[in-house]
Every structure is written in C-alpha cells, then in structure tokens.
C-alpha cells in the first residue's frame, strides 16, 4: 500500500507539473521563447490566494478566481511590456528579459510579503478518501488536483481544435509569417496564449500550495524549472506531451524521494530527462524537424 500511496501522490505532483508545463509549452510553441518568469507567476497566484483567503478571510473559491484574474492580467502585461518589443530580436534577448521579469516578480513579492515562509491554507476543504479499511488514505487535495488536470487538458484540447482563436494559435505556431498573411492577428494570438498560460499558472499555484503549504517568494522557481523539464521531456510544443512528461516526472520524483534518497530525487529526475533526450532528442511526443539545406 505504501507504494500505491507514493505513486498516487506522485501522479498528483505530476498533474501540477503538467498544468504548469502547459504554459511553457504553449508559449514556446507559439512565441518560440522560454518564459523563465512563468514559475514566478505561480508564486504570484499563490500570494493572491493567501491574501484573500488567509488575510481577508474570504472563501477559497473567490481567492482562486481573483488569482486567475490577477495572473492573466500580469501575464498579458509582461508580454506587452517586456517581450513584445523584442519579437524580432534574437531569442537570447527575450530569454534575458524573461529572467529580468522573474527577478522583478520575486523581489516585489519579497518587499511586500518578506522572506519568511507563509502558511498556506488548502483551498480544498473536502474530507480525505479512505480506502481498503484505512490502509490507504488519499488526500482530497490529491484527488482534486488530478481531476482538475484532466478537466484542463480536455478543455484546452477542445479549445484549440474547435474555436477560431484556437485554430489561429495552431496556425501561428506552424508559421508565423504565413499566418499573418492569412489575416491572423499574430500579436493578439500571442497575447491570448500568455493569458491562458498565466491563468493556468494561477490554478497550478493554488494546487501546488495546497499540497505543499509553505509559501515564499521563491516558491515558484523550482517547480517552474521542473515543469519546463517536463515540457521538454514530453516534447515541447505538444499538449499531450506536457501531460505525459509532467506525470512521469512527478512519479519518478516521488518514488525516488521515498525509496532512494530525498536529497538525490532532483538529480534522478534530471538524469532521466537526459537519458530520454539522448534517445529521443525532441522528447517523447516531439516532432522531428528535418533540416533544409
């Protein structure tokens, strides 16, 4: 039963990684940039919920809605201010501004909330699920996380395949120039991508902080890097890839924490990533790009 419980909490952690990885993978697929500040948007979402629920005493649902709204605005604003002016510049320049935005968000949070960890109250208030006569307890946060991840995946896939703006996103990711010739507003499409990615980051923040309830200005950076690893693992640019990569990563991390060494779990996760990339250089579901001469 021990294994099963570690496995399920691994899947749940992986589901959070998958939701974060969606933000990375969509932005990368469409704007061809690594948004290093994505992890810190999770942290902002966490602090918005913390302020509304713990400080102001409002219901958790209101906190989540406010966090989603705040993060969406934040994502679109950073895109407009820091990334859009560099659309035609080298990808390294955008990487550096993204790092700048990441430092900026961390330091604003540091100024407002200080560096002491804040105790986050879980947004999930349901009772835990007890199975097999008490031998296996699954926390309600775990269940809610996994279900939310599945709903988000289905909704996002439907959104991209069925709606006009979703199709525009696909077109921009295929070929930005051709898409703009077909009358697609590239800037608007990219802004929508950032809005969706950031809204998902807010939800991921709520779920992550409910499972690991210690909130600091640096809470988002390591899960951000891990989620990016998950996105690469599954094949960057691919939505099912983000799900697969996230879940595999979460399970490996939790099992190696439980059975090998908690200090080495990150090393093991990264080692698996390296092995996968050496065998499949574009990730599990990544498309192979043929080079033209």
């Amino acid at each position: 039963m021990g294994f099963l419980s570690y496995f399920i909490s691994g899947v749940s952690l992986g589901a959070v990684y998958a939701i974060i990885a969606l933000g990375y993978t969509m932005v990368y697929g469409i704007a061809r940039m690594l948004n290093f500040a994505h992890g810190d948007i999770i942290m902002v979402g966490g602090f918005v919920i913390f302020t509304i629920v713990s400080t102001l005493g409002m219901p958790p649902l209101l906190g989540i809605i406010a966090a989603v709204a705040a993060c969406t605005v934040l994502g679109v604003t950073t895109e407009r201010v820091a990334y859009r002016p560099l659309r035609e510049a080298s990808s390294l320049a955008v990487l550096i501004t993204a790092i700048g935005v990441s430092y900026l968000l961390q330091n604003i949070a540091l100024l407002v909330f200080g560096s002491n960890p804040r105790q986050f109250t879980s947004v999930v208030t349901l009772p835990n699920l007890v199975l097999a006569g008490g031998a296996l307890t699954i926390s309600s946060t775990t269940i809610v996380t996994i279900i939310s991840c599945i709903i988000i995946m289905i909704a996002l896939t439907a959104f991209i395949n069925k709606t006009k703006i979703g199709q525009a996103m696909l077109a921009v990711s295929e070929d930005r120039g051709a898409a703009s010739l077909m009358g697609i507003d590239v800037n608007k499409t990219i802004a929508v991508t950032f809005a969706i990615g950031s809204a998902l980051a807010a939800i991921a923040g709520a779920l992550l902080c409910s499972a690991y309830p210690s909130l600091t200005p640096y809470t988002g950076s390591m899960p951000g890097i891990k989620a990016f690893t998950a996105a690469v693992f599954g094949g960057i640019g691919s939505i099912p890839g983000a799900l697969i990569g996230g879940v595999i990563l979460g399970v490996i991390e939790n099992l190696s924490k439980a059975y090998i060494s908690s200090q080495l779990s990150d090393a093991i996760v990264f080692a698996v990533l390296i092995i996968v990339l050496l065998v499949r250089p574009t990730g599990i579901l990544g498309r192979k790009i043929n080079e033209k001469v």
């Binding site: 560099l86 320049a93 550096i96 501004t97 790092i99 700048g100 935005v101 430092y103 900026l104």
Partner: peptide, 12 residues
C-alpha cells in the same frame, strides 16, 4: 535587487 531587475529589462 528590484532596481537590478528593472535595469536588466530596460537594458535588454
């Protein structure tokens, strides 16, 4: 560090 971050963004 806040100023550092802003300098980084503006310079880039």
């Amino acid at each position: 560090m806040l100023i550092y971050a802003i300098v980084l963004i503006v310079m880039t």
